[in-house]
Each structure stands twice: as structure tokens, then as C-alpha cells.
């Protein structure tokens, strides 16, 4: 129940933060999040900062430039958007660390199931993906040509595609064997 409430709170907070445009309110909200994050403050702050810095810098700098040329006020918008984006990102990281997503989504067995199956395969695939990259590095003596890279990417994608299709068959059979489908 705790996880469901947390996720619900997160969804509501996202809607509020994107609907209410008062800078003082957003700043206050951010301070509350900072306090709640406690010992994790620095870690979350760094993570959120690096997650948004690229996109936000581009938008802020171009908005500033355009406004200066056209003589519009700019401070209000730049403060508002950066504050809100940072708040949402920080809050996202804060909540995700605390919610057991599988518990939060347990009202839908389909959703939980897809997430468990996909999540575990993603972790396996990521490991194999790293090995593919290592194996290429290990085998390339001079420099791989574009043709080799195309072959490499194709065979890697085929491997994963084949593996996915086989896994989906095997998982189905395992589920049947465990009496999942009631036949």
C-alpha cells in the first residue's frame, strides 16, 4: 500500500508542479524535497543536476539571447523553467529510490508481469552487450572497417532478436509447466 500511495503522490505532485507557476511555491517545494532527502541530498542533487544541465543550458542560453535581441524580459522565465525542471527531476530520483515499483503496480498483473520479465532480461542483455563490445575490442587488431562494424551490429542485433523470440517461447512453456494458464 505504501508503494501505491507514494506513486500516486508522485503523479499528483508532477501535475501540481507543472500546473502552478509561482516561483516562490516551486522554490519552497524544492526546499522541502531537499530536507526530506536527508543524507542522500548531495547524491540526488548531483544526479539531477547532470541529468538536466545539457538540455536546460541550451534552452536557457538561446532564450536569453533571443530575449536580449528582441528586448523582452527574460529573468522570470529562466528562473521558472530551471526551477521546475530541476524540482521535477530531483523529485523523480527521490521517489524512485523509495518505491518498489513492482509492489506499486501490483494492481495490474499484466503490467507487473511484463515489467518483471522485461527487467530481468534487460539486465542479462546488458551484460551480454558489454561482452559483445569487449569481444570486438579484443579481436580488432588494427581498426574495424565500416563493413565490419555493420556485420558486427547486424549479428549482435540478430543474436538479441533471436534470443528474445526464443526466450518468449521458453518463458511461455515455463509458465505453462507451472500451471499458469490453467490448461
Amino acid at each position: 500500500m505504501k508503494d501505491k500511495l507514494f506513486l500516486l503522490f508522485y503523479a499528483a505532485a508532477v501535475i501540481v508542479v507543472t500546473s502552478y507557476h509561482n516561483i516562490m511555491f516551486l522554490a519552497g517545494f524544492l526546499v522541502v524535497m531537499f530536507v526530506l532527502s536527508g543524507a542522500q541530498f548531495l547524491l540526488l542533487f548531483r544526479k539531477a543536476f547532470f541529468a538536466v544541465v545539457f538540455f536546460n543550458s541550451i534552452i536557457s542560453v538561446s532564450y536569453l539571447t533571443v530575449s536580449l535581441i528582441q528586448g523582452h524580459p527574460w529573468a522570470q522565465y529562466i528562473v521558472l523553467i530551471n526551477l521546475r525542471v530541476f524540482l521535477l527531476t530531483f523529485m523523480g530520483f527521490f521517489i524512485i529510490n523509495r518505491v518498489n515499483l513492482f509492489k506499486a503496480l501490483s494492481f495490474s498483473s499484466t503490467m507487473t508481469f511484463i515489467l518483471v520479465l522485461a527487467g530481468s532480461q534487460i539486465l542479462t542483455f546488458k551484460k551480454i552487450y558489454d561482452d559483445f563490445a569487449f569481444a570486438l575490442k579484443s579481436r580488432v587488431i588494427k581498426r574495424a572497417q565500416t563493413k565490419d562494424l555493420h556485420n558486427y551490429i547486424s549479428s549482435m542485433i540478430c543474436f538479441f532478436l533471436n534470443k528474445s523470440v526464443n526466450n518468449s517461447r521458453e518463458v511461455t512453456q515455463a509458465m505453462r509447466s507451472r500451471g499458469f494458464f490453467g490448461d
Binding site: L115, I157, L161, T172
Partner: peptide, 24 residues
């Protein structure tokens, strides 16, 4: 039929790794 959920989940994992790949 019953293979639908495992199928979608597996292809999701596929799509995830495919997005890690950079094409020259």
C-alpha cells in the same frame, strides 16, 4: 495467445539494448 506477454516483454528487452547501439 498466452505467448503475448512474454513476447512483448522479450522484445522490450531487445528494444532496450538496440537503443544502446550507435551506428557509424
Amino acid at each position: 495467445n498466452e505467448q503475448a506477454i512474454p513476447f512483448v516483454a522479450s522484445l522490450t528487452a531487445f528494444c532496450f539494448v538496440a537503443m544502446m547501439i550507435a551506428i557509424p
